[in-house]
C-alpha cells in the first residue's frame, strides 16, 4: 500500500516533464514480488532516467480487464509504453542488467 501510493505520487509529479518514459507496472495486489519489483524499478529509474519518467502501477486485482490490452500473462510485468516500441519485462526486476537491456536504457 505504501509503495503504490508513493508511486502514484511520483507519477503525478513526473507528468509535467516532456521527455517522458512512460512505464507501466502490472501487479496483482501487494505481494512480495510486486513490492520488490516496484522498489527495483524505482531504483533503476532514479539512477538512469531521473526526472524524465513516469511509472503507472496497475493492480489487476482491481482492474482485471486491463490485463487483456497489454497481453499480460506473468506478473509482475513492466511495460514500456513510451518511447516506442513497446517492451515487456517480466519478473521482480532483480536483475538490473537485464532490466536495462529490456528497457533499452544502455544507450542513454
Amino acid at each position: 500500500m505504501k509503495t503504490v501510493s508513493k508511486g502514484k505520487g511520483k507519477k503525478t509529479k513526473i507528468a509535467a516533464t516532456e521527455d517522458a518514459w512512460n512505464l507501466r507496472l502490472y501487479v496483482a495486489g501487494q505481494t512480495q514480488k510486486s513490492i520488490t519489483a516496484f522498489a527495483n524499478l524505482k531504483k533503476i529509474c532514479e539512477e538512469h532516467l531521473a526526472g524524465k519518467y513516469k511509472i503507472e502501477v496497475i493492480d489487476l486485482l482491481k482492474n482485471p480487464q486491463l490485463a487483456k490490452g497489454d497481453q499480460i500473462i506473468a506478473l509482475p510485468t513492466l511495460v514500456r509504453k513510451l518511447p516506442e516500441p513497446i517492451k515487456k519485462i517480466i519478473g521482480d526486476l532483480a536483475n538490473t542488467e537485464r532490466v536495462l537491456v529490456g528497457l533499452d536504457i544502455r544507450a542513454v
Binding site: 506473468a74 519485462i89 517480466i90 521482480d92 532483480a94 536483475n95 532490466v99 537491456v101 529490456g102
Partner: peptide
Amino acid sequence: EIEETGEY
C-alpha cells in the same frame, strides 16, 4: 518481446 528479470 519479453525480457525475464527474476521472479514472476
